[in-house]
Design a protein around this nucleic acid. Structure first.
Lengths: 193, 193
DNA sequence: TTCATTTCTTGTCCTAGTTCAATGCATGCG
DNA sequence: CGCATGCATTGAACTAGGACAAGAAATGAA
């Protein structure tokens, strides 16, 4: 049950079995049905969720009421609005919603503090996780600015090969920053080579 | 001399004078003339630089040879390509260049390791710095996707009030992801109310 | 001070992507 | 099973912003 998450957290730092045990004891297993909103705008985000199974999206709602998807998380990914709310006591501006029935390990800020006290090496692992997250976001910003819609879509397919089968097209359009109609046009053009 | 950087690093974690002394002893002071490239694409980024004075830009070059500015750093900001190169041994895809004569404190990966051993509380401070960085990048991604060029420019002016006086317009255009010509048109339109 | 180089502005034409609307297609639910 | 709601597709008209070109203004080096 814990093998997935232990593998994930050990990717850049090696832990003793004992340390992993402490880590695992601080996680809360949770199943959530699809279309459940885990975090509303204006709430404090008091969790980091590791996706064991399922698919989640994180999104903003812009001034005109349009959703902009910032992140999809599938198996073995973390999702949270860690960036602001946990450490700054600012309410979140994002929503987090399950798109499929999900299984999570939920990790609370308190548990995280406890973990860092009991096994300080985890501080490092979580810092590196954060760095990778930053790198990915930065890369996405670059793509958003400098690539055409078609290029972005092809890149998306390559990067998330399973996701285009699992989530609705208009979510992918929202992630790419284009209209659902235009994505549809791109797809028909690609299909005809 | 160290007051600026100590204030910066103490923003979310409180340190003993002794700890700050260790930190300061590991920094290297450096002055760099304007238009100097600190990091070329393909190199390893082996520093994190704290800007004491001056202005720096970090940018990608896209497939068509266009520069896309990811970040400006002015006084009291950190700049690095920390996200990839330091921890993954991957060469950097970005350039970092001074736009004005600059004073820095340079912080190397080795010094950072040494610091974390001698004063582990810094691990936490640097993790939080990273989180803020992620939050800012995420916010920018949202703006890039969901706002018009005019809105982005006005937001930029509000957020970096001094920067529009200090750097060339076409750099700002590149940061906003629009052409320099179009920014000029936006500016004349704004000027006429 | 002068000349050269870079930066900014303005105009014209062009295109990638949007908006709106209509239609057919799934799929989930009573 | 039938119906309703959401989803994808397509087309037509529109627009934000880009590309190119040429001139004006600013900066800087000698």
């Amino acid at each position: 049950m814990y093998s997935q998450i232990n593998k994930n957290i050990s990717r850049y730092v090696t832990f003793e079995p004992k340390e992993l045990e402490i880590f695992n004891s601080l996680l809360e297993y949770k199943t959530v049905p699809k279309k459940t909103i885990l975090l509303h705008e204006g709430e404090m985000c008091n969790f980091e969720a590791f996706v064991i199974k399922g698919c989640v999206r994180k999104y903003y709602i812009d001034a005109n009421g349009f959703e902009v998807i910032l992140q999809f998380a599938i198996e073995n990914a973390w999702i949270s609005d860690i960036s602001f709310s946990i450490y700054e006591d600012k309410p979140s501006r994002v929503y987090i919603e399950t798109l499929e029935d999900c299984e999570f390990f939920m990790f609370s800020p308190d548990s995280k503090e406890e973990l860092f006290v009991k096994a300080p090496k985890f501080e490092r692992a979580f810092r590196i996780l954060m760095q990778r997250n930053l790198a990915v976001t930065q890369e996405r910003l670059f793509y958003t600015i400098s690539k055409t819609a078609t290029e972005k879509y092809l890149e998306f397919l390559e990067h998330y090969p399973t996701l285009s089968q699992r989530v609705a097209q208009h979510y992918i359009a929202s992630y790419l920053g284009i209209s659902a109609e235009f994505l549809s046009k791109i797809r028909t053009k690609i299909a005809k080579h």
